[in-house]
Amino acid sequence: MTSAEQKEAISAFIFLSPFLVWMVFLMGGPILAAFFLSFCKWDILTPIQFVGLDNYKEMFFNDPRFWKALFNTAYFTFLSVPIGMVLSIVVALLMNQRVKGIGIYRTLFYLPSVVGAGVAVAVLWKWIFNADSGLLNYMLSLLTGIPIADCPKWLASETWSKPALVIMSLWGVGGGMIIYLAGLQGIPSTLYEAAEIDGANRWQQFWTVTLPGLSPVIFFQLIISIVASFQIFTQVDVMTDGLGGPADSTLVMVLYIYQKAFKYYQMGYASALSWILFIAILLATWLQFKYSKWVYYEGELRK
């Protein structure tokens, strides 16, 4: 290394120092600590006790609530992610048309997703899902003629509580829409012109130009939204008052981790749960990369 290079490296590490501190103390260290804790029993007050694989054994063979939480999380993910994805692509396609006032429509669709992650929105939806006087059942009975008393009880029903969470999550399609819109606008218009000259109709253009052109964005969104929906917490905690009810039907992984760690002070068991969540997310992401042949990268052609 020349002295100029050395100087540059030193100043680089000064610029990097906030990140390095974070990496060691708030990321790497805690991951390892959580891994270690997952083999221990600890309530913070009494000394740590090493228990080997006991937490994991308990979890897999003796804890129906763990399986319930895993199932509920997967149920929510597999329902909300595909529906949300299709909806936000459809909305983005509509938004990509030249019609008057498109800026207003974009804002109206995007706004809920911005405000959407907070407690305020969870409170709003709790009220919308109210079985007797809520907006959703009112609209349902207005449109279908079913009396309100026979409509789903939503958050008060074991069957309908998870679909209710999915419906609420769909109100945030605007977030995905913006990203797909950026993707759509990045597809060169020459490709559409070429397709048109070749006699492709709208539908064929969608399948042969739009979808392949959008596939890297779809892939990115798929990964991000699966990771995010594995972590759903705020809405469930607020709407079910921290219980995940009725009858554990909305007990999701993060809520269960939170309960174990900060209500029952089972830090070891909660750490084991968090590692399972971690592995589930890694596995889901890895599978998506493994089966990502459908993703079309324009740059690859040029190689």
């Binding site: 990097l16 990140f19 990496m23 103390f25 708030l26 990321m27 260290g29 805690p30 991951i31 600590a33 959580a34 804790l37 913070i44 990771v227 594995f230 972590q231 992984m253 993060v254 981790i257 760690a261 830090m267 909660a270 750490s271 968090s274 590692w275 969540l277 971690f278 997310i281 890694l282 992401t285």
Partner: peptide
């Protein structure tokens, strides 16, 4: 490698680091 490490942390759910960070 450091940049890849940085990107990899996006895959770590905050709940994994939550408990040790809380204790810290």
């Amino acid at each position: 490698p450091l940049f890849i490490l940085c990107l990899a942390t996006m895959m770590v759910p905050p709940q994994v680091t939550m408990i040790p960070t809380f204790i810290l």
